[in-house]
Amino acid sequence: MMTNLFSIFEPSSSIPSLPLNWMSTFIGLVFIPYLFWSSPSRWNLMWNTITSTLHKEFNTLLGPYHMGSTLMFVSLFSLIVFNNFLGLFPYIFTSTSHLAMTLSLSLPLWITFMSFGWLNHTQHMFAHLVPQGTPPVLMPFMVLIETISNVIRPGTLAVRLAANMIAGHLLLVLLSNNGPSASSSVLIIILSTQVLLLLLESAVAIIQSYVFAVLSTLYASEIN
């Protein structure tokens, strides 16, 4: 039962040495050229408003000297939210439910931030290990705790995103498996619950994308 349940997250559709399901990661890129040749629409204006708001917020978190860096984090948000939303459609593989995808996003960012910080702001990075006002007796423990919290950051980012994507999809699959054998009254309840869960998953798709991008921005702001 568990094998069949989690098989929806397996990239099994493939030809030799080329898993085609992972190509769903790039479906979001199909929508980008549309913005350049279509006339302005409400969806276009809404997306421009979202990206402008994110740019201002990330710029505030990073500071005035890193204005160009916001493009990277807005692009990161766009990639994740596209994959989260497209995963809600039937027969589209949800790549953000895999640690292979989420770790590929968080780990390079964390390694880059840490490398830049320790090479260019070594004294600040050492000072960041001991919060201000820490008693001398607790300093070794605080250094250990801060070091562990820094090391596990890419893992927590990756697991948070993947776990939230898996949890909602599993609930949808568990409910849909009971549909064929259910009576008419129970089927109506299942369909109503499915619609509510889809609305919830749409909200989770946006929230988790925002959380991933904001936390990445905060981690980048700490190295200055």
Score class of each variant (00 low, 15 high):
residue 156 T to G: 05
residue 140 P to A: 12
residue 168 G to V: 00
residue 114 M to R: 10
residue 111 I to W: 05
residue 106 S to C: 02
residue 121 H to S: 14
residue 135 P to F: 08
residue 132 Q to A: 13
residue 81 V to C: 12
residue 107 L to A: 06
residue 140 P to Y: 07
residue 151 V to I: 11
residue 89 F to L: 15
residue 106 S to H: 00
residue 150 N to T: 03
residue 159 V to P: 09
residue 129 L to M: 04
residue 93 F to Q: 13
residue 96 T to R: 10
residue 106 S to F: 00
residue 87 G to I: 01
residue 109 L to A: 07
residue 166 I to K: 14
residue 112 T to F: 05
residue 163 A to S: 15
residue 121 H to Q: 08
residue 133 G to P: 12
residue 97 S to W: 09
residue 83 N to I: 13
residue 131 P to H: 10
residue 153 R to T: 10
residue 120 N to R: 15
residue 136 P to T: 08
residue 151 V to G: 02
residue 142 M to Y: 00
residue 79 L to Q: 10
residue 165 M to H: 06
residue 73 F to Q: 09
residue 134 T to K: 01
residue 129 L to G: 03
residue 69 S to D: 11
residue 120 N to W: 10
residue 122 T to N: 13
residue 84 N to H: 00
residue 87 G to W: 04
residue 93 F to D: 09
residue 124 H to V: 09
residue 122 T to P: 02
residue 115 S to R: 08
residue 106 S to D: 01
residue 155 G to V: 07
residue 131 P to C: 11
residue 146 E to N: 15
residue 82 F to L: 14
residue 74 V to W: 06
residue 166 I to Y: 04
residue 162 A to Q: 02
residue 87 G to N: 05
residue 86 L to G: 08
residue 146 E to K: 14
residue 85 F to H: 06
residue 161 L to E: 10
residue 86 L to V: 04
residue 159 V to C: 08
residue 162 A to E: 06
residue 153 R to Q: 06
residue 154 P to R: 06
residue 109 L to C: 09
residue 164 N to L: 13
residue 106 S to L: 00
residue 129 L to C: 00
residue 117 G to A: 15
residue 100 A to H: 12
residue 158 A to R: 03
residue 82 F to Y: 10
residue 105 L to T: 01
residue 92 I to L: 14
